[in-house]
Design a protein around this nucleic acid. Structure first.
Lengths: 253, 253
DNA sequence: AAGTGGTCTAGACCACAAC
DNA sequence: TTGTGGTCTAGACCACTTG
């Protein structure tokens, strides 16, 4: 109801911090610092308990939360592993567009075509969403994804220049597999969370041409901001999805 | 990659069921049976532990999962309560359309207008989605939701006839508050999960007229199937959302 | 057989809310 | 003061994976 919400009212100062939360923060720091790389195992619960001088149960609860946030993956008998976008069964975790018939696996991966890739200066709105300053260097990419030969997704991406220094159209074209997996492997940037704003729009001439539709074809506009650790925004993506053969699927809990 | 996925490969027969899962099932049964009503407290962990002859920790883990699935709500010092759609801070949990500026609270609740409400026989597609048989009795409702005087959402609802016997346009119009809260209070049906399929579409003449837009205005088509306990589908909802002043907001973990 | 995560227990103590 | 959920511990045992 308040027009100017006071954070203090929502977060009454956590005068208290449970041990397991502190342990979780410490593990998070190590993840962020790259002490263990995506796909690698982190130390066993017993080892971590010894390192932090707490009981195994406390470490356990910390890891439980990290697993719930998809930052690590537990595997009984083997260990706990740093989550990665490269794994087969969680690939394209952030892509919610699925074919109307059959499933993602039968359709297979999309054919990708880089339309454009250039270094630019951030406009005001892009800078705001990426927590940069207007005029800061950004890398802009435009590409088309096709399924079974049909152009289905037109995406514009903006990446902050500094963390992605050295990324070029060539390297993008060479890479096979999820783009987020490349970000991990090549640039040490792991996306952990994203939020999307979805609208229905009509494409302009150039967008329609790239997707092979008319300007009277309604499309899904999906604006995504993806974050790495500590909620740092690291990618802005504006997609146009054709929804005649696919749909955006969402689960509500 | 397999064209005919074998469930057995994914679920290798849970030859084993942890105690806390069994306890969870028992609590779930009581929730479903209405032993404790929405908004009411369930017995304390100690009481439940005594009832089921297990330790408090085991009950705790069972309740933890129920809380993670939004079936119950824990409140320190007070108890654990059956979740409800009637609570202020989780109202309209399943409605992801939010205003572009300001927030849901400043905008306030929508003005509602029932356009139509009739008993019918289920068509094949409606029957399939509601796990009924073609021709079974269903209640169909059409309504318009307006924000600040602007028609924004046009919704068609289908409800299975049997569980919602006695529901009429009058009772719908009289009710103030979330529709799902009415389902709980008046019909003992609690929606716990839903899935949505989203597309971009153009409205037909009658839809456009009800929303006050032209037939060239792209709209979000949102088809939702809401489920009660045990994944029983209990509502089909097809919505058309205007996205010129609002957008569909989604979080990706 | 050894090491990992997963379950279950019992008990102590803390934070919060209500009386 | 009492009762609730929340934290932390220590130990035993189970299930799964690897060698």
């Amino acid at each position: 109801m308040s027009t100017i919400p006071t954070p203090a009212a929502e977060l009454p100062t956590p005068s208290f911090s449970p041990l397991y939360q502190q342990i979780k923060s410490l593990i998070l720091q190590s993840l962020h610092a790259g002490e263990w790389k995506p796909g690698e195992p982190i130390p066993s619960e017993i080892d971590l308990a010894a390192r932090f001088r707490v009981s195994q149960g406390t470490v356990r609860k910390a890891i439980d939360e990290l697993a719930a946030e998809n930052l690590v993956v537990r595997r009984q008998g083997k260990g706990t592993f740093v989550a990665t976008h490269a794994e087969q069964h969680v690939q394209y975790r952030f892509l919610k567009l699925v074919p109307d018939t059959g499933d993602v696996d039968t359709e297979g991966p999309a054919e990708r075509q880089i339309v454009d890739c250039r270094r630019q200066r951030a406009t005001a709105d892009v800078a705001r969403l990426l927590a940069l300053r207007t005029g800061d260097a950004v890398l802009q990419v435009r590409r088309v994804l096709s399924y079974r030969g049909t152009p289905t997704i037109l995406e514009d991406l903006w990446l902050p220049g500094a963390p992605f220094k050295g990324l070029t159209a060539e390297r993008l074209a060479e890479w096979h597999g999820p783009m987020y997996a490349m970000f991990e492997t090549e640039f040490g940037v792991r996306m952990v969370r994203a939020e999307e704003k979805i609208r229905a729009v009509l494409p302009d001439e150039s967008q329609a041409a790239l997707l092979g539709v008319t300007t009277a074809t309604p499309l899904l506009s999906v604006e995504r901001v993806a974050h790495t650790y500590h909620d740092t925004p690291m990618e802005l993506r504006r997609g146009l999805y054709r929804t005649d053969t696919h749909h955006y699927r969402n689960e509500l809990g």
